[in-house]
Write a protein that binds this DNA or RNA. Structure first.
Lengths: 337, 337
DNA sequence: CAGTCAAAGGTTTGCGCAATCCAACTTACT
DNA sequence: AGTAAGTTGGATTGCGCAAACCTTTGACTG
């Protein structure tokens, strides 16, 4: 259990800890003979330097903190995977906290990670969180912070997001180009920027193609039952020829409702999702959707963070990256003419 | 950036660091007056104790290491979620490493986490890994270790797994009880214990119900194309009335192949999956499957680990928990008569 | 009123490491 | 031979904290 230290080796060889430290760190001013003896004993005893001691001394932990809303969400795990791909090769460790989309827990996580003296922080802000003092604090004490996927305007820090506006615009345009004219839109949860941006992308596409924006075609999806009630009459009256949903799960429900009404996808109605969740390719028909570069978002965010941490980017310099999405056309939409 | 220490507070108040330490730790022998002054200044300056220093002193980091094969696998994320639910309330932090199912990376992760002086380790061994010296080392140096989901017989340490044998047995029995007699089985990847155990559960069910084991009904799924080639003739000749697949993704392919041949699920053929992945309930028909208590497995493993770490369980005592699965019957199988 | 004791706090030490500053002991050259 | 310049390594310090061990002061006892 007790791990051996440089002092142990020093004692055994009748030298000082300094000498051992220098030998192990390859400083040139140790004679070949002494060095060999030290290295040999270190090897034999399985010496491993104690990072805690180093951290205490150098005020550097080679650790980054990560705050995500939850583990069981494929999107965040792809982001996480991207983050890990970078931190791993750069020799940093990840300490993860989850926020459960709750302000209190998120705030506590921030505090915990700062307490642990992480070298930097990556965070995906939780849904429905609209107070950001905890993130402001990170910036105030000058700990590098990069936000992922979701931003808060108030806090001046670097971030990496995907272009929800553009993604939704392209998806809507695809529907239009494939002949749809009466496109319904199902909104996501209120209070997150993505919801707003995708919605605006949808509207922009209509505008661009000079289609009227019809408020009755836009449905809130806060309650599944609500969705069914609102959507069914629109479908029965054949007012829609396409539905664009805020995410793939909602899209699934939409397909379900459409089929319940006796219509078929995509013959009667096209359906477009968003996010390219794994479930999208297991639905029937397979769902056309917008693929977000989640892995890239994670790796880019981590890469920016580590550049700040390592001093290659001034902390004052605020980088904001907005990654492009990609349409994934499957069977729930017709081919574009 | 520079965080304040007890020494800073001590200097400001003209007392010694010990006094500050004692005041902050609620030791009774500090006068009310001194304590108030110290607490007030600590509060004002936002003092936060440095866990690195404490760890160095007490040889305890309040950190557990976690090794999983990959992030982008829903099952592990549920496990992770379960682990976090325990560590969070017990005040421990999680440092995660991934192995990418590669021995070298897994070994390196073990080394990294040991170097970081984690108080204990949780690990889900990667696929195709059959050398376990790195885990043996953990046990040797007496760092608490609990294996999750997959075990290696050689290493004597606690573990938490699910009962694949029982799960597969029950699933197969369900098929039998709902009238199926010609049950095909699609095997999983070779070299992992789960593959073997589920397969044995399938065979046990046949035996129990005195159905013959027919080798030609068992197909390896190593290649998707292979699966199609092997399965199609069995289907066309109507030799099967049910297929039990090693996991839900394979089950999806099976359904696809069945429908391709012109048969319907579950009318012509029942299909049973395994794992209850999210995709299972988005397939059409919705997939009957075996639900694994992933979250519980994680929380139980974490709970056992922390009990060892905190000395409530002797490290020498080996706990092995085998959690039960649960059948989730959806639309890909008929109702049991 | 000396002696005792407890209250309140100071001093020292060490966790493991490495940077800084020193001190021997060679060589090497005038 | 004497000094300058390496060579090789020791001693000390401090990162932040807390345990172990001392010291001072006043109050209280017999």
């Amino acid at each position: 259990m007790k791990r051996i230290s440089i002092t142990d080796i020093a004692r055994a060889l009748n030298v000082t800890p300094s000498t051992v430290s220098r030998a192990l760190n390859g400083e040139p001013r140790i004679s070949e003979k002494t060095r060999k003896a030290i290295l040999a004993l270190a090897e034999e005893w399985g010496y491993r330097p104690n990072p805690l001691a180093k951290s205490l001394l150098h005020h550097k932990t080679f650790t980054v903190g990560l705050i995500i809303p939850e583990f069981t969400h494929h999107f965040f795990n792809q982001v996480l995977s991207g983050i890990e791909s970078i931190t791993n090769v750069k020799g940093y460790h990840i300490i993860i906290c989850t926020s459960d989309n709750a302000y209190d827990k998120e705030k506590k996580s921030v505090q915990t990670l700062l307490d642990m003296r992480v070298d930097g922080l990556l965070a995906a802000i939780g849904n429905n969180i609209n107070t950001f003092d905890h993130f402001q604090e990170i910036v105030d004490i000058k700990v590098p912070l990069v936000l992922v996927d979701r931003i808060c305007e108030d806090v001046e820090t670097s971030y990496v997001v995907t272009n929800d506006f553009e993604g939704a615009l392209q998806a809507t345009e695809y529907l239009i180009q494939s002949g749809c004219r009466q496109i319904g839109y199902i909104k996501g949860p209120t209070h997150i920027s993505t919801t707003f941006n995708r919605y605006m992308g949808y509207r922009e596409a209509l505008k661009k193609w000079q289609l009227p924006y019809q408020e009755e075609f836009v449905v809130e999806s806060n309650e599944p039952q609500n969705l069914r009630e609102k959507l069914t009459p629109l479908l029965k009256n054949r007012l829609l020829d396409a539905v664009f949903a805020h995410n793939d799960y909602i899209a699934y429900d939409v397909i379900d409702i459409i089929q319940e009404v006796g219509l078929t996808v995509p013959n009667d109605i096209s359906v477009m999702g968003y996010a390219n969740e794994p479930v999208a390719s297991y639905m029937s028909p397979k769902l056309s959707t917008v693929k977000q570069p989640a892995f890239e978002m994670g790796s880019l965010a981590a890469s920016i963070l580590l550049q700040i941490v390592e001093g290659h980017i001034a902390p004052s310099q605020i980088l904001s990256e907005c990654l492009s999405t990609e349409l994934v056309i499957r069977a729930s939409t017709p081919v574009r003419s």
